[in-house]
Design a protein around this nucleic acid. Structure first.
Lengths: 341, 341
DNA sequence: TTGTACGCGTTATCAG
DNA sequence: CTGATAACGCGTACAA
């Protein structure tokens, strides 16, 4: 292992000068700079990063915490994070939790122990107070999910308005009996999607029927099971709003297995716009989240904190876009004409 | 920041003893051990990991290199790796390359610079010689992909026999005009899947038709485009073997868009058995890879290297399993009866 | 413009 | 069983 001392000796300068050259700081005569660089080349010197990290207390790495790397949503966000992280020369540590709060706490330790310079939480099951306290001491950003009314830096879409838009679209199609598959309610965005759903119903003087509200866990299987359950009701819904695409895909599968046509017999819509949404049969009407951008923006926010740049804007609420495909029946325009008639 | 010195002082022992207690090594009298632990508690002491890493030259982290975290295949393998890594107390660094060899070299630097203790390559586009040389100096494991005839530790399925099995199934169904969508040929497993395909044809005295062999890039879009192309031929194939599920899904979509029924008009099969394979319509016949196990095994192999445990077996060839679903037409059994008649 | 010398917090060696 | 102390390699005041 060749060290900075070896370089210094060969270049006949002090280690301080070598360090200066390597970091492009301080005034160093061109001649000595060249001597140093030559020595570096000759010895094929690579700085000992671990020593540097120890010395500077900077690891140039961050950790991203999320429940499931296998999820098409989280992995896309992660991709956005990674793109910006690498641009700023940060490494990204995998923080897969498998929904285990215990694990999450372990990742928090990485921060406390300075093994990473910052953290992005794509979701959190641990005590909000803990996160808030940590956020006051370390660079932290929430992405996709968020805490109610807290000023931890955050980037996400407006889930309430997204879900409202979607529900209104369904209502405009003539649906009055709409089932809602929520995700686990310990996630704030789950609550918000439900809120948006309810708002739309209320706005249109439709009553929300308890039997039509079911809680799933955002998996295909869960959407499948919930659909079978809801189809047992005497008065079936004419539409299902699954609050993510995986559940919607499971719902379509279940409906088809029960001999129902989608959307003719049962309209089904989702949320997120994962790749599968435009592949499945019928193609899924959904709310598109700008996943990559959420990741990029989150990393930008984190970077600013790590650099101690005051945040011009700590909260970013992006737009969720209604994507009308086939699974909800006739298009919005068609329907308007229909109603006008 | 409270250090080991503070603890030593409070416990009225030397730092050496504190370190001994903390690592459960050496003989320490119970009484002093208690004193130390009390001091640790009282001061809420957390060892400085960076200092430790610097001292021991161990980071307890590894990097996993792969082209696309968004891929259902790679992310599942990654999950397996992560499970075992955490059991052994290793952190996992994300090595997304977006297929950029440049990036891959950067991750190699992490190894050389001792920023990680080991590396798992899920695929590699860089010079094989470089990898082999590196593997002689650092813990490295190849997973999913591999090098021909080299003794770098590795775990993967037998792609040749997997592809052969699949092709034979198609032939047994009565297909004689089978198209093959390969992946990029710079990946060895791509070559092997093609080899297996060709072997099966040759074994059954079918000739391989150049027009039916197309190279894609393992994406849905590519499967879609290739299918449109192949359907332009005067003599259309009766079956398509797409060498991964994404391309197969794209192929199904294209066929359906062209008004063809799958499998009646055109049989389509894939490879990998990603989640989507059992969701799409029709469900996909495919070769299942034990993705999670590949990841687990790869991490075990890496761990053994990092611990300097001699590898009992450096190469693991797992089994790819033929999963017969709907997209290939009548089931194998039905078909045999049919032929016997 | 350059060099000296110290400290970062641990672990490891060696002596007692 | 325990303590003193020397590294580890780098960055950086401070001095020259």
């Amino acid at each position: 292992m060749t060290t900075i001392n070896d370089v210094a000796r060969l270049a006949k300068v002090s280690t301080a000068t070598v360090s200066r050259v390597l970091h492009d700081i301080g005034n160093v005569k061109q001649a000595t700079r060249d001597r140093v660089m030559n020595a570096v080349e000759a010895l094929n010197y690579q700085p000992n990063i671990l020593a540097r990290q120890f010395r500077t207390k900077e690891t140039r790495s961050i950790v991203v915490v999320f429940p499931d790397i296998t999820s098409p949503f989280y992995s896309k966000v992660l991709l956005g994070i990674e793109a910006v992280a690498h641009r700023y020369n940060y490494q990204v540590l995998l923080g897969n939790t498998r929904n285990d709060p215990e694990k999450e706490y372990q990742y928090l330790d990485l921060l406390k122990q300075k093994q990473v310079d910052g953290m992005i939480l794509l979701t959190s099951r641990i005590d909000q107070a803990d996160v808030v306290e940590l956020a006051s001491q370390f660079p932290i950003v929430l992405a996709g999910d968020y805490f109610e009314g807290l000023q931890v830096p955050m980037v996400a879409i407006d889930n309430i308005s997204g879900a409202r838009k979607m529900t209104e679209h369904l209502i405009n199609q003539g649906h009055e009996r709409i089932a809602f598959f929520s995700g686990p309610m310990y996630r704030n965005f789950s609550k918000d999607r439900f809120k948006g759903f309810r708002q739309a119903l209320v706005n249109h003087n439709l009553q929300v029927c308890e039997d039509y509200i079911l809680e799933g866990n955002y998996t295909i299987d869960s959407g499948y099971a919930l659909t079978l359950k809801i189809l047992e009701l005497n008065l079936r819904p004419t539409a299902i709003f699954a609050s993510n695409d995986q559940m919607a895909v499971g719902a379509i599968k279940a409906a088809q297995d029960m001999g129902l046509r989608v959307p003719e017999d049962l309209a089904i819509v989702g949320f997120d716009d994962i790749d599968m949404a435009s592949i499945c049969e019928p193609e899924l009407t959904t709310i598109a989240q700008p996943k990559h951008v959420i990741g990029e923006q989150a990393m930008e926010l984190l970077y600013q904190q790590m650099m101690n740049i005051p945040l011009s804007k700590p909260h970013f609420i992006l737009d969720g876009k209604l994507i009308i495909r086939e699974s909800c029946g006739k298009s919005f325009e068609c329907n308007r004409l229909h109603q006008v008639k």
